[in-house]
Amino acid sequence: MKAASFDYIRATSLDHALSALAESEDAIILAGGQTLVPMMAMRLARPATLIDLNEISELAGITNRDGYLSIGTMTRQAAALASTEVNAQTPLLAKALSFVGHTQTRNRGTVGGSIAHGDPSAEIPLAAIALNAEIGLASRTGTRTVTARDFYTGPLSSVRRTDECLTEIRFPIWSGTVGVGFQEISPRHGDFAIVAVAAQLEFGADKVCRRASIAVGGASANPVHAAEVEAALVGKRIDPRLANEVSRAVDPILSPTDDLHATAAYRRRVARVLTERAILEAAA
């Protein structure tokens, strides 16, 4: 269980990292290492070169700008979870983070690393897809922004080119009265989800739902955004009956598979129930 040999580059700035990425054959970015290093230990990954982003302070930090909370890619999951700004402005992300691993993995694991990796069951990509966060990418030839809903192309794969580095994730800030729900089934707390559902709702003074964002993780190749459920909630007052009824609309958008942890049928069933619960949690 030891990693194979590699060349190590301790990047000192984003420019340094981007040049190294463009110039080295088979180079991989090392962020928190909480996924990549286990993969290297198991020899599932054997990069020739590792470009370590951990000493680049410009890539970490949380700023409130232009209606978005911008989270630097190297922001530790622990720092984001402890941030009063994240809690106040993007409560869905705050809630999702509390399900990600353990204190020790959150102290190293980064927000951007989880987004870049794109595990179908991971909570941070789920929150990003629910809120349609914007993902900032940079390469030596320029920068671009991709929305979370357009970012993934399958499990552990995305539109990111190999010469690109994530720089920040911008989560939209909702105004008004906002409620959030995050429901997850996992073998133990801190494990990856079998299925998880994230819901963020905005209410008017009359308690009528004015805006809804809902996504389901762990039941498809990537988390999926439940547009039909959202549409069925807007303009209504939420009660248990409505939540039960509208949650059925998640079924057609799921494409679960059987694996070691659960059958596809179980995932479907749980996805519906968790959607109902997440809506009620957000409305409570």
Binding site: A3, Y8, R10, G33, Q34, V37, P38, A41, L50, D52, N54, A78, T103, Q104, T105, N107, R108
Partner: peptide, 13 residues
Amino acid sequence: GAPVRSCLLFAVQ
């Protein structure tokens, strides 16, 4: 100052 797993950190880091 923060607890981490030493098997997931390369010594060079």
